[in-house]
Design a protein around this nucleic acid. Sequence first.
DNA 1: CATGGCTCCATACCTAAGTATGAGAGACGG
DNA 2: CCGTCTCTCATACTTAGGTATGGAGCCATG
Lengths: 215, 215
Amino acid sequence: MSRATTQVPSAPLPTVFVIDDDEDMRSALGNLFRSVGHEVKLFGSAAEFLQDTSSDAPGCLVLDVRLPGMSGLDFQNKLASTNAHIPIVFMTGHGDIPMSVRAMKAGAVDFLTKPFRDQDMLDAVTRAIEADRSRRSSQQASSGVRDSYGRLSPREREVMTLVTRGLMNKQVAHELGLSEITVKLYRGQAMRKMGAGSLADLVRMAELLGLHKSQ
Amino acid sequence: MSRATTQVPSAPLPTVFVIDDDEDMRSALGNLFRSVGHEVKLFGSAAEFLQDTSSDAPGCLVLDVRLPGMSGLDFQNKLASTNAHIPIVFMTGHGDIPMSVRAMKAGAVDFLTKPFRDQDMLDAVTRAIEADRSRRSSQQASSGVRDSYGRLSPREREVMTLVTRGLMNKQVAHELGLSEITVKLYRGQAMRKMGAGSLADLVRMAELLGLHKSQ
DNA sequence: CATGGCTCCATACCTAAGTATGAGAGACGG
DNA sequence: CCGTCTCTCATACTTAGGTATGGAGCCATG
């Protein structure tokens, strides 16, 4: 495998973040994940994880539902509400069905009962990392579009919205109280600023931005 | 024109389909759901449900994981593989965590342990019916587009694909080995057959159809 | 064999879109 | 007060898109 092919300083290797208050469990999981080539970081509590600067790196979270301080489920909700959408694999030694259902409904990737087979954990982590990779790539794709849209002037945005809704220039002009030639101007500027090579591109960007969802 | 979509005689009231081999449980659930105004149909086994002609009506499924004949989880998989995507609420008296996790990963709406509170079941069914309603409406929206697309000739589909990718008529012509005027012809026919009022509409339809997913 | 559908192209014509250039009105900071 | 920026529009021109009409060959269905 190629180590560092580009100039990126911090390698974006997916990391498995393990949170467990049991020292033995932590190191065992660390060895397991490292044995298949994953990057691993170990934490004894949720607070330690939150203080880690790299906790927003790509990867997934493996944690016990019973943590010191905060419960794993509460921690899951906390992460979800702070837009940190890292996939979570739960473990438990003394769980019950409502607990597992609540975790799964809240988006957990898996919920394993101790003792679990190594392979089950590895499979869950593989799916979790893949989910994170997929989410990040789609979010990154839309963030570029969102940035470009942020650089449009108000008029350019209005024109883009109406044009991608399917209106002709003259209809847009009437809608906004402008002349057709002015609409053409803003339309061209919007295309350039958005980096759209065609109207089809602009329509797809508008969809991504949800310009036609509301109302 | 719009005959096919409006000939449904039976009222499309959402129905709660209950499958449980326990007679008492069935009737208790029937009373519960009827008490809040739901349509209900009761079955003693998965086979009975499958034989029912109305089993593809809008609504949701409430079933025990332990059924006579086939397990509830296997039944879930069977339904999923036969494109019958009715939302499922599981119940169990003797379940375990792996069972509940498997059901939730397979898309179950909820997984309740007996005895459960009536309100928990009602909440789950409410969410399940809402999920079904949402799924059906979005699917119906795309089915019309899919029908129209099915009536396009091969050439019209190719032109539609390339045009909605953002290519100019002359580029499409070169791509397909046609003259530009012919592309214009098929493009116009595709627009008419698809019922698209603008290129923006056509692009959105192409997105809905996934015409640009498999690059 | 005839009819109809699909494919393909041409000519002609019109509308829509896009670009370039210039310029006026209003705002804002230096 | 001046330069500059945004928003606005005009004129002029080019390119792209869209339609109508007509005609050709091919093929399958009845």
